[in-house]
Nucleic acid binder design. Structure first.
Lengths: 230, 230
DNA sequence: CCAAAAGTGTTGGGACTACACCCATGA
DNA sequence: TCATGGGTGTAGTCCCAACACTTTTGG
């Protein structure tokens, strides 16, 4: 029935990397400028071919590390893109992933075969290579919907953060304004944030208490099937 | 940078087909019994290789039609499975889909290269070929979560149905008991169901009013971004 | 003392849950 | 007339949204 002589598309992975930029209070996406054809001088997501002895998950993590030095971050499969003409060199199917990282921990670092690496705000995305704009659109949609019912926003923040920063992050991702009191009540009621005896420093106003995401508690609650909702 | 001399995994699609079986009041999954090795005599989802001139979406629809005669149904990409040893013949990556169909409209029909085709309840799934049990688990999880916030339950029902059948369907998928009055109120409040001037026939009790899913209304509401919630 | 953000409670309305009886029909 | 599911309303509770002022700190 099946045969190995069947023609095979090439298989790649692409990785959309989101980060929270505290300075500009905006979500950013990491792009690398391609040095070679096709799409030389265009911006694209880090990615590359899947090896014969690795899963696509592994390939995505490997490519991410090779091209940006980033590893051990939240990463999830997004969708498999397969338009016949999405790559001018021939038939290439790509499994897209998205990652959420903390910009302080992972500064952008030039990749070997790229001219440069840069963070872009979602409203300043340049012309992208391949069908990467479509991939980005879907990744952002996924981020928006997932952030509402799974506590993945924390992946974008430093380990210790004030509630106001978390709120700002949610406001940026969801593109809405949230009520401060209601937001605090709701987020604290989940019990997923541990208040610390530490405070902001060097701010020209009352220092905010820092919180940290309680991963143990989250795992425990997940096991007994709870629901999170912003 | 990229090269076409790169080794390529084979690429397939697999399709999990869910249906609502009114007779047994249960969700069923269509499996085909494999005639040939590997996994001869094991049950598996319909699927097959992706051609060089088609998208994976197209391949999934094509394989579904070729192997079961079913076409023009709700079908969505689920996940891409890529364990290195998932196929004993070598490296095969598979993009899984799930479909929701109406069992009356699409009776199971024997496929060319299968010994037989059968519907199985979720509690009577036999040993499956490849990693298809894992695929099924993920597909069912997706169905369960999606049915709560997108009106996809209707894809499983005939065009005209009484509310009690819709409720039964939800109860089976979500594996819970729902309150009749609250369910009716909530589902009618969405405005997505059009009441008809038709009723059940040949039932040994008061005949229930039939309803139909209002697709136009759904599309209109979707455009203006509404949210649906069971 | 001023500017800037931190932090805090209450109230009204809408939504959800729980719950029980009569109705229509065919056998 | 009986058995079976169809169909309906209400009351109590909880959750959510809306809203403004005082506190703390550094400059």
């Amino acid at each position: 029935m099946y045969t190995y002589e069947y023609p095979r598309p090439a298989l790649t992975v692409d990785c959309v990397i989101f980060a929270w930029d505290k300075a500009s209070e905006a979500i950013k996406v990491m792009l690398i400028e391609r040095a070679h054809e096709p799409f030389a001088n265009h911006w694209a997501f880090p990615g590359g071919f899947v090896d014969m002895d690795e899963t696509v998950d592994t390939a995505a993590a490997r490519e991410l590390e090779e091209e940006t030095g980033i590893k051990n971050v939240f990463m999830e499969q997004l969708y498999t893109f397969s338009s016949v003409d999405r790559d001018p060199r021939g038939r290439v199917v790509s499994v897209a992933y998205y990652a959420l990282i903390n910009m302080q921990k992972h500064p952008a670092k030039a990749a070997s075969d790229a001219k440069s690496v840069k963070w872009f705000g979602l409203s300043e995305i340049p012309a992208l290579a391949f069908d990467h704009q479509q991939i980005l659109d879907m990744a952002y949609e996924r981020l928006k919907s997932k952030v509402r019912y799974q506590p993945i926003g924390f992946e974008l923040l430093p380990r210790k953060f004030p509630l106001s920063e978390l709120q700002l992050l949610y406001e940026q991702i969801l593109n809405t304004k949230l009520d401060k009191r209601n937001f605090r009540r709701k987020i604290l009621k989940t019990g997923l944030l541990k208040p610390l005896e530490e405070f902001q420093t060097r701010v020209a106003h009352r220092a905010a208490r820092l919180y940290t995401f309680d991963d143990k508690k989250y795992k425990a609650l997940t096991r007994e099937g709870f629901s999170f909702e912003i």
